[in-house]
Design a protein around this nucleic acid. Structure first.
Lengths: 356, 356
DNA sequence: CTGTTAGCGCGTTCAT
DNA sequence: ATGAACGCGCTAACAG
């Protein structure tokens, strides 16, 4: 009975109409749940007939055909450069949580080469997590031709699309300065490859804060690792095994900080007492773990990002969009202020508890 | 000059035709590069005019509209349950490498709930990396209605779609038995959450191989960790710090084995001499590292998977597909035999070199 | 050989 | 509740 007339072809709205004995228009109204004016429009009996026919044939509306008419794909695209980065996973998680209730499907583009894809593939909104200088022009053109964009970048100008900024420098300074209240021997745990990326900024904040405090930077207090958790764990173990080990570690990412906490505990050190550890990024895991992770980062970043993206996706279609590019309610640039989250892994230090 | 008539709307083929002063058919021929018969068909001067007009307007063909006519989306969908797993990243990498030259875009679906999405969103082929028992029916229906599927599952029946199998059990036995040639004190490093998943199989292979060899399993030789690299590193460190430490470690994933190698080296143990370590999965990193990782796993898995997927994607459209579901050239089930890769981290052990 | 006309395919939506 | 037009790009068949 549930066996469809399995011709191997995808059932169309016309087949459903024929089986139900109604017109395609009726089928469309029933299955999409809307009617031009707002009146009831379709009687219950016929609606039932249509639904039964659709079910029996295994009918599913063809998104492509729907998109061509409505201009909506019910899809958002996430262009994520570093899929292995937990940051990307947080983006995906937040967007998925927000999108599913709206009937919108997030599609992930793992390639850094979003320019070609976005030219032809349409989505209700697109998130781009990195823009190379040579891609800026393409970005502007895409926006000009109706692509709804949300871009994460510290430099690019908002020009027909939204830009999300999250300036790391000052926030990282706050993290190091927090440690400086109670420590002099402060190590830095950072990926070796971070030179060109945002990690460079994060390391620079460490160097500058130490210099500003009149502390000579020690080369052996800089724990470089290969970017993996295991590497961070090993580097932290090395730092904390030194004869004059640091009393505090500034890790340029939260996951490195987590590895450092594991390493310290493995060495029998009480985190938050014997050694303080602070991270960067304010990822959700830090809040949940024990001891909870002190960190700096934007507040509520991923959820806000997801909300903005979906507001754009469900907003007026592209043709209307150009009308009001930047209003109070719809800013072109969304700047995320960074906060210091003082938690257990690096608590407040008074004169009585400082470690020097 | 490059400034398009930026009306904010997406240019259509008709606009291009109008600007170029030709018909839409000509535009289509020029831009898609094909002509009914095969001859060039369009003169150079007009072709230039069309290209110029398209460029000036920033025209990009609308994939959705194209798909509805041709039945091709130039897209493959990868439904990946555990995006954080390196396994998923390997799939993505392999598919991307194979797809881009063909002009096909891989789209990643991070949700485990592929049933709803695949019902409406079309792709030339879909890869699904996990099928819950309650999803099997949906799978069959999708295939019946024309979705081209490649499924990775050890149990599901090939029924109108391709199934890729990669039976872990015997392979894992081979890994442990390899260690048994030179060791008695063999530890197992495995994620704690692996009970329900394939990890369960992998642990069971360890228990069974030991029992078969007449060795009593020791609870303190089972290093459970939280699934992260840092956790694996810590668990391996614990194992290797024991007074009567194991002389070999069987890690149920390659990345755990990598962490174990790091941990051993950190403890001053020579991997491949003092301690042997073997992984599971045959991921590419293992081959590149030093010491190279001994492992078991399918041969060339990701590349073969990618090739199959793209062969299906570029193959005859769905209506034809049902004709030959299972031929010699196009098997319904692709079974990946597992091999043992003896490399430096766990070399062959003779009577002279065995550690007991 | 070159270019156009006309109509396909799909779901939506406006008049009737 | 329906017929027919609509939006888009593709392409067989045709005209010059």
């Amino acid at each position: 009975m549930a066996k469809a007339s399995s011709t191997g072809v995808r059932p169309t709205i016309r087949m459903v109409a024929e089986v139900a004995g109604v017109s395609t228009a009726t089928v469309s109204y029933v299955l999409s749940g809307r009617r031009g004016d707002g009146g009831p429009g379709v009687s219950d009996p016929t609606a039932e007939k249509v639904k039964a026919a659709a079910e029996r044939l295994g009918y599913r509306p063809n998104q492509a055909a729907r998109a061509i008419r409505t201009g909506r794909t019910n899809t958002v695209i996430l262009s994520l450069t570093m899929l292995s980065d937990p940051w990307s996973l947080s983006v995906i998680e937040a967007v998925q949580k927000a999108a599913v209730p709206l009937g919108i499907t997030p599609m992930i583009l793992g390639d850094a080469d979003w320019v070609k894809v976005l030219g032809t593939h349409n989505a209700d909104a697109v998130f781009v997590d990195a823009v190379r200088p040579d891609q800026r022009d393409a970005l502007r053109k895409l926006a000009e031709h109706g692509t709804t964009l949300v871009v994460f970048d510290e430099e690019v100008q908002a020009d027909g699309f939204d830009v999300i900024r999250s300036i790391a420098g000052p926030g990282c300074r706050m993290a190091v300065e927090h440690l400086l209240h109670g420590h002099r021997r402060i190590a830095c745990l950072t990926p070796a490859t971070a030179a060109g990326t945002s990690g460079g900024t994060r390391y620079r904040a460490y160097a500058e804060a130490l210099e500003h405090a009149g502390i000579q930077e020690r080369e052996d207090y800089v724990g470089l690792f290969d970017g993996t958790s295991a590497g961070a764990y090993a580097a932290a173990t090395r730092l904390l095994s030194m004869p004059d080990r640091p009393t505090a570690i500034y890790a340029t990412t939260d996951y490195a900080a987590v590895s450092a906490i594991n390493a310290a505990q493995r060495l029998g050190l009480a985190v938050g007492t014997d050694v303080d550890i602070i991270g960067v990024g304010n990822t959700v895991e830090g809040e949940r773990m024990s001891p909870s992770l002190s960190t700096v980062g934007p507040v509520d970043f991923f959820d806000k990002l997801a909300r903005l993206l979906l507001r754009r996706a469900t907003g007026p279609a592209d043709s209307t969009r150009q009308a009001a590019p930047t209003t109070a309610e719809d800013p072109g640039v969304l700047d995320f202020p960074w906060h210091l989250f003082v938690r257990e892994s690096a608590p407040h230090r008074s004169a009585a508890t400082r470690l020097y």
